[in-house]
Amino acid sequence: MSIKPKYADLIFSGAKTVELRRVCPKLKPGDLVLVYASGPRMALIGKFEVKGILSGKKSAFYDEFGASSGISRAEFNSYFSGVATAHGIQIGRTWKLKPETSLNVLRRRFEGFHPPQSYRYLLEFEHASLTASQGNESTASTQGRLNA
């Protein structure tokens, strides 16, 4: 999943526990999401477990989840302009990848790799390849779908 670096850092610091989305993601609790920090960082930096999926009227969503989203009300209103329903991914456990995997390395490992505009699904071998050098600290059960 592509996320702006400042929001990705908030996820891994524990300050951001809800990732906002304009379209309801096809995820379920227990799925793993790989986090790609978009430009200027351009690197795979970690992953998180989906705790749950939230959906609700935009008018009330910020009041309930805004403090967990890492954005201001003005940013929220701008992001959700033109939609009636807001969606969020509740973030469970997180793992930082050490070292991060740069876009250049991803492209060398996976011919034709392009960072997702929003998110894409990974095959099991892709996940294994991306996290193989991470040791126990950054590995988790790969049951469920793997998402990037």
Score class of each variant (00 low, 15 high):
residue 19 E to N: 07
residue 86 A to I: 04
residue 81 S to Q: 14
residue 132 A to C: 12
residue 51 K to M: 04
residue 130 L to H: 08
residue 71 I to N: 12
residue 147 N to T: 11
residue 29 P to S: 12
residue 68 S to P: 00
residue 42 M to C: 15
residue 118 S to C: 13
residue 113 F to V: 03
residue 108 R to H: 09
residue 136 N to R: 11
residue 108 R to A: 14
residue 79 Y to E: 03
residue 42 M to Q: 12
residue 124 E to K: 07
residue 92 G to W: 04
residue 68 S to L: 03
residue 23 V to W: 07
residue 124 E to V: 13
residue 21 R to I: 04
residue 61 F to K: 05
residue 92 G to M: 02
residue 74 A to V: 09
residue 86 A to Q: 05
residue 53 I to L: 14
residue 95 W to V: 00
residue 11 I to P: 05
residue 75 E to K: 12
residue 145 R to H: 07
residue 104 N to L: 05
residue 121 Y to D: 11
residue 9 D to R: 14
residue 91 I to Q: 12
residue 16 K to Q: 14
residue 132 A to V: 12
residue 4 K to F: 15
residue 45 I to A: 01
residue 139 T to C: 13
residue 30 G to Y: 06
residue 23 V to S: 15
residue 79 Y to T: 03
residue 23 V to A: 10
residue 59 S to V: 05
residue 51 K to W: 01
residue 146 L to M: 15
residue 44 L to A: 10
residue 56 G to F: 04
residue 80 F to Y: 12
residue 31 D to W: 07
residue 104 N to H: 03
residue 134 Q to V: 01
residue 37 A to M: 05
residue 2 S to P: 01
residue 142 T to F: 00
residue 8 A to C: 12
residue 61 F to I: 02
residue 70 G to V: 10
residue 130 L to E: 13
residue 8 A to N: 02
residue 1 M to K: 05
residue 34 L to E: 09
residue 135 G to N: 11
residue 129 S to P: 00
residue 14 G to F: 02
